[in-house]
Nucleic acid binder design. Structure first.
Length: 268
DNA sequence: ATGCCTTGCATGGCAAGA
């Protein structure tokens, strides 16, 4: 079973590339982030036409997540238990953003996740990011505590570079988000809860800023991951970043990441 | 030092991205 995760930076703009990507790489499940549209605007028909099922959660032009699967989609959830919301006004109700969608696909409980960016260290979004990650960690611990043999996969844009090798120049990130100790600790807690990275290791970039010709310069970041439970991670046979997808006109600023798992696609 | 590019929307200059 081949599972990919990709921040597409607008599903409507990137629909052609998404269809071609699925076909070219023979992908079973695609975990999508930053669709930037409402459910009624998502190009679902493009994927059903080539044999996939779609679950999408989008509220407006911000965020938006989807699961595109040809091994079934059951039991869809559009937030994980305890997921914090956000509101500029801390006294107002905190609103759940379209940053998580989970489903049972081919016997695997998959989540497509778009972790809050954090913006600046002093910004309320930074604290929101950390709270969001700790709540996610708690959910993982609860799932694996109840069933240590669960096949659980978190895939998506985590907006954290876990090591200094995961940015092109750590000195360029002085005082910036994505590399701070609290963010890295929050990422580490997901691993301590029992998950393992199945995507390529330190130094294999998945994102290159549009600004400043970062891709041409080879100046990227590793911020997109698949984190798998032991029962799933033990079946992983290989992974790669589809760097070609970042080339040329009309590319997302993120490249897709692909992992192969030695599972019966029919599901458990 | 700052912006660099790309997206979507109240199709305008923003807001947001990382």
């Amino acid at each position: 079973m081949r599972i990919a995760n990709w921040n597409v930076n607008s599903a409507r703009t990137r629909a052609d590339r998404m269809v071609e990507f699925l076909t070219r790489n023979d992908v079973d499940i695609l975990l999508v982030q930053e669709t930037k549209c409402r459910d009624d605007q998502f190009p679902t028909g493009r994927f059903t036409a080539i044999g996939y099922h779609v679950a999408h959660f989008g509220l407006d032009q911000w965020n938006g997540v989807a699961i595109i699967s040809r091994v079934g989609i059951k039991d869809v959830h559009t937030q994980f238990p305890g997921q914090p919301g956000f509101n500029k006004n801390p006294a107002a109700p905190q609103l759940t953003e379209a940053r998580a969608i989970g489903a049972l696909c081919g016997g695997v409980r998959v989540w497509s996740l778009y972790v809050p960016n954090g913006r600046e260290i002093a910004d309320p979004h930074y604290d929101y990011k950390l709270r969001w990650l700790f709540a996610l960690r708690n959910h993982v611990a609860e799932i694996l505590g109840a069933d240590p043999s669960a096949r659980l996969l978190l895939g998506g844009d985590f907006n954290i570079a876990p090591t200094d090798a995961d940015v092109w120049d750590i000195s360029a990130f002085e005082g910036k988000t994505h590399v701070t100790e609290p963010e890295r600790a929050a990422f580490e807690q997901l691993l301590e809860a029992g998950l393992s990275e199945t995507t390529p290791g330190p130094g294999t970039f998945t994102y290159w800023d549009y600004k400043g010709a970062r891709f041409l310069r080879g100046e990227g970041m590793r911020i997109d991951f698949q984190l798998a439970s032991p029962a799933l991670a033990s079946t992983a046979t290989g992974s790669f970043v589809d760097v070609d997808e970042r080339r040329g006109r009309g590319a997302s600023d993120h490249a897709p990441v692909i992992v192969d798992y030695n599972l019966d696609p029919a599901g458990a």
